[in-house]
Design a protein around this nucleic acid. Structure first.
Length: 422
RNA sequence: GCGGAUAUAGCUCAGGGGUUAGAGCGCCUGUCUGUGGCACAGGAGGUCGUGGGUUCAAGACCCAUUAUCCGCCCCA
């Protein structure tokens, strides 16, 4: 019996793990710099939390949750997204202070039972932020800008920010009716799939790839004509502030989001490197969610970013996998075994990474090992060095060798190491 | 959940019923006695995804199953 990782899950091996750490660190750094604090929430929650927040009819809740009953017969679900748990914790611990703004970031695995594809997995990782307590368009823009700055920080270019407004519930209902009216004579003969879609969320018909639907929708007025004046003004202000921030965007009426809690501003950031799963990140404003979860009426905005997709896009953009490396390989001889070990220990305690050959085979072989291990330096610890107190240090990439007195070795290495620990 | 493709060495891939299954890269060893990379020579490594079936004979054909990829759907 051979085991393999469950469908739609991935092992992350050391060289790829380094990419992950860079991405996570960049996220933490960007969000920290904007005044966000980290929040960590459990891997699973009461299933009801997600039903109440994302909406019963959303695909995520109705079909894709990993849910289970525990031994106490609690009905739980592995979290399929990051916002609802963060808000739950925000309310549970009374982080809310009247009139104050709360900024949170998180990094979490998420779970969805879906058919896997590149960029779509059953366990994925999501990083996101929630800006709670402001209804200002400036808050929307801060959140969008945070996402953009994060992608810049990890070196991704050629991204597209897609922006839309879906207004408030009443405007949305009105607009959906418009869509249904437009399709009323056409819909009855259509596949069940389209009909169900029309029933659950007519807005979703807008981003259908079916050309016949698109043909039917020609001439449909823009959602902006149905928006309440406040929503429209909010949207226009977001546009102006984005321009002022130097963030280019494309207004896209097909961005409607799959989770029910959004209102007004919705956005996605896309990369062309990702095939069908082109969305790197999605978010928007959710002024009704906190009340829905039992809190006071509180406006909020946020986004969730898929990190697998960020990593794939980064790889497609030509970022190579990092090679594992060590700073120093200590080459010794059987005669100098204890001194060799002592050097390894000293270097490690001095903050340099160091390894050596346990078997202390011949020098040629040890140099080869050092090469394989991508050591920056090799220090030779032989009888000669020990008696004279002057050590030979090879800088591998430059094939050069320096002779350094014992007491200067550590500082010599530290000052020449390519880059400090990241 | 629907449609399609793929699975052979650590990696990328050839082989399409008939002796001991191949290449490139990687890995190991030697040429090389305190000096890596390069070159040359040699070597290790495969129950051909898994389980059944057809056949004198299956890596190849058939069925099932698992996984990955592409499109739909959905979204991160």
């Amino acid at each position: 019996m051979k085991f393999q990782a469950p469908r739609g899950t991935n092992d992350v091996l050391p060289s790829e793990a380094m990419q992950w750490r860079q991405i996570e660190r960049a996220f933490e750094h960007v969000m920290g710099g904007m005044g966000y604090g980290e929040i960590r929430t459990p891997m699973f929650e009461e299933i009801e939390l997600f039903r109440r927040s994302s909406g019963e009819t959303s695909e995520v809740v109705s079909k894709q949750m990993y849910d289970f009953h525990d031994k106490g017969d609690r009905h739980l679900a592995l979290k399929p997204e990051g916002t609802a748990p963060a808000i739950r914790a925000y309310l549970e611990h009374s982080l809310a202070q009247p009139g104050q703004i709360t900024r949170l970031w998180y990094f979490t695995p998420i779970f969805r039972y879906e058919r896997p594809q590149k960029g779509r997995y059953r366990q994925a990782h999501q990083a996101g932020i929630e800006l709670i307590g402001s209804s200002s368009p400036a808050a929307d823009v801060e959140v969008i800008e945070a996402a953009v700055r994060f992608y810049e920080a990890i070196g991704l270019k050629d991204l597209t920010v897609l922006l839309n407004s879906i207004g408030r519930a009443e405007a949305r209902i009105k607009y959906c009716q418009l869509i249904l009216d437009k399709l009323s004579s056409w819909l009855p003969g259509q596949p069940l799939e389209s009909q169900q879609r029309a029933e659950k969320n007519p807005l979703r018909l807008l981003d259908s790839k079916d050309p016949s639907i698109q043909a039917e929708l020609v001439g449909l007025p823009s959602i902006f004509e149905s928006l309440e004046p406040e929503s429209l003004a909010h949207y226009r202000k977001v546009e102006r502030l984005l321009e002022r921030a130097g963030i280019s965007y494309v207004q896209d009426p097909t961005i409607v989001r799959g989770l029910d809690y959004y209102n007004d501003t919705v956005f996605e950031i896309q990369s062309s490197a990702l095939g069908a799963q082109s969305s790197l990140c999605g978010g928007g404003r959710y002024d009704g969610l906190i009340q829905q979860l039992g809190g006071p009426t509180t406006p909020a905005v946020g986004f969730g970013a898929g990190l697998e997709r960020a990593r794939i896009a980064r790889e497609a953009a030509g970022f190579p996998l990092e090679e594992l490396s060590v700073d120093v390989f200590v080459a010794g001889e059987p005669l100098t075994e204890s001194e060799t070990e002592a050097w390894v220990r000293l270097l490690r305690q001095s903050g340099l990474s160091a390894t050596y050959d346990f078997d202390l085979r011949d020098l040629k072989r040890q140099l080869k090992m050092a090469d394989r291990a991508r050591a920056t330096f090799v220090i030779l610890v032989g009888p000669e060095e020990i008696s004279t107190g002057v050590f030979k240090i090879k800088t591998m990439a430059e094939s050069r060798q320096d002779e350094i007195p014992r007491e200067q070795v550590v500082s010599w290495l530290q000052s020449r190491r390519p880059r400090a620990e990241t």
